[in-house]
Amino acid sequence: MRPNLPVEVADRLRRDIFSGRLRPGERIDQDAEAAALGVSRVPIREALIALDREGLVDIVPRHGVFVWSFGPEDLADQYEVFGLVSGLAAERAAQNLTDDELANLRAVHAEMSVSRDGERLELLNERFHMIINRASGSRRLAWLVRFLSGSVPRGYEAGGWQIANRHHATIIERLGARDAEGAGRAMRDHIRQSGEHALGVLAESGIWKA
């Protein structure tokens, strides 16, 4: 088994949960998921344990694994916490970011501004935030941001990548000015608006309809 296979499976299941393919409260058929992904039950089981730690599934002994029965209020709370922690990381980064890290951040932003490849944009977006989180100077804080990012939907940047890039430009501007308060505020606004956009899209998809 590839070392990162459970991570790949968890990512796929996470997307299926937030897309509505696996609906809130639904029992997950591990055999069916293993067959669909062409893997054994071992990486499925390990992935579900990881998702249980994230709060996205509930493992009920002798009954099975069920998708977390989350509603819009639950997701809004998670985005709020995610934004608060991400804002703190940005505040710390404004004080610690090196010139090389700032240059890397600008290079990532420049590529994001011209790319039209969805998968590439998601990868670049992760890199953008990773640079900031690592520059916070706190491994624990960076880990917490990474953990929380797994508990919210991906690919729902605030109103689309064009708007997200404008948010990123503001964040870079505040980081470059070593404005900790401004960087934190810009990051919190970015996460909040991304959350509002995600909630709107998910509601329209009918994920919470009975």
Rank of each mutant, 00 (worst) to 15 (best):
A198I: 09
D16W: 15
E196M: 07
L123Y: 04
G150D: 12
A103P: 04
A164W: 09
Y156K: 06
Y79H: 03
P72K: 00
Q193E: 10
I171R: 02
V60E: 04
G20F: 14
G118M: 14
A110M: 00
D189L: 11
L97Y: 11
R15C: 00
D77S: 13
E101Q: 14
S69R: 09
G25I: 04
L84W: 07
I59K: 11
R134T: 04
E73Q: 07
S151V: 05
D29S: 14
Y79G: 00
V42P: 04
P24K: 07
R12F: 12
I28S: 07
R2E: 15
I207P: 13
L199I: 11
A34K: 00
A34W: 03
V9E: 11
E111W: 01
D58I: 11
V114F: 00
L123E: 11
S151Y: 05
I191L: 05
A32I: 10
A110P: 00
G87E: 07
S151M: 10
L121A: 08
S149C: 08
P61L: 11
W208S: 10
L22T: 13
V152M: 02
I172D: 08
R62S: 09
R127K: 10
S149M: 06
R12P: 02
A76V: 01
E91R: 15
F70G: 13
A36R: 12
D179F: 00
V145F: 04
I132D: 05
R178V: 01
V7K: 14
E173G: 09
P6H: 06
L102H: 12
L102S: 10
G25P: 02
P72Q: 03
G71P: 07
L144F: 12
A183K: 08
E173C: 05
R41N: 14
V9K: 06
V152T: 09
R185I: 05
V42F: 01
S194N: 03
R166A: 14
D99W: 12
W161Q: 15
H197T: 12
R127M: 10
A76S: 11
L88E: 14
P24M: 11
F147A: 06
W161G: 01
R120W: 03
Y156A: 03
R27Y: 06
G150F: 07
D11V: 12
W68S: 15
S205G: 12
D77Y: 00
L102T: 03
H197M: 00
Q193P: 01
A47T: 00
R166I: 10
K209W: 06
